[in-house]
Amino acid sequence: MNFQAVLELESVIKVHGSGPTAVHALGPIDLRIPAGEFVAIMGPSGSGKSTLLSLAGALDSPSGGVVRVQGTDLAVLSSRALAELRRRTIGYVFQELNLLPGLTALENIALPLELDGVPLGRAREAALASLREIALEALSDRFPDDLSGGEQQRVAIARAFVGPRSLLLADEPTGALDSVTGEHVMRLLRKQCDGGRTVVLVTHNSAHAAWADRVLFLKDGLVVGASGGEQGPSGFERSGIGRMGERGRE
């Protein structure tokens, strides 16, 4: 086994229900994501995107196959060990922000650490570091209602990454945001990957998916295509875009 893979899916299948009414939601899927990679998953509604994310995040278990997070087969973990993995290793960002309205930005970010038994002072220190990373430390005392949609989403990402977590799973995190704010969120996710963390993003927005290193297309529960996996960081020179000069006219 290669321990460099943060997330690994091997022949993973998910079927909802059983008997004649069973619905085949996903798979078989094989996927290996090394540390520091940013993977986007696209596909029409019902193609299995969110199912894949739930399985990767240990929020649901597969009907067949193996899901490994940092080399550990999730099927062998006790429910207590799974809960610990979800708290310590995996961060989640959803379209619904799920920030607690009665807590400040800082308290929201510190909360998962506190729940994990980290002493209050250290949890807040880590939360502040996380806010600093996204240049929102000035807003640490604000309540969610006093933040813009983009700021709230950035706080949610800071919370997902607080502490030693290495895998971030994001389901349509830019759904309700305008283009420029959505781009800020993508830039932030990109920065996290460049810093060595791993991101899996589910999105219907191709311009946002394009921030990823690799884009997978799902259809009817299967990966039907992938783009970008083999490429280097850039791949072309500024003057080479499009060759529009050939179409120029006086």
Partner: peptide, 18 residues
């Protein structure tokens, strides 16, 4: 359509990297 989508996505990724 499938192969065009991947080619266009590749192009989109190149622009985004720039």
């Amino acid at each position: 359509l499938r192969s065009q989508r991947m080619a266009t996505m590749d192009r989109l990724q190149r622009y985004t990297r720039e």
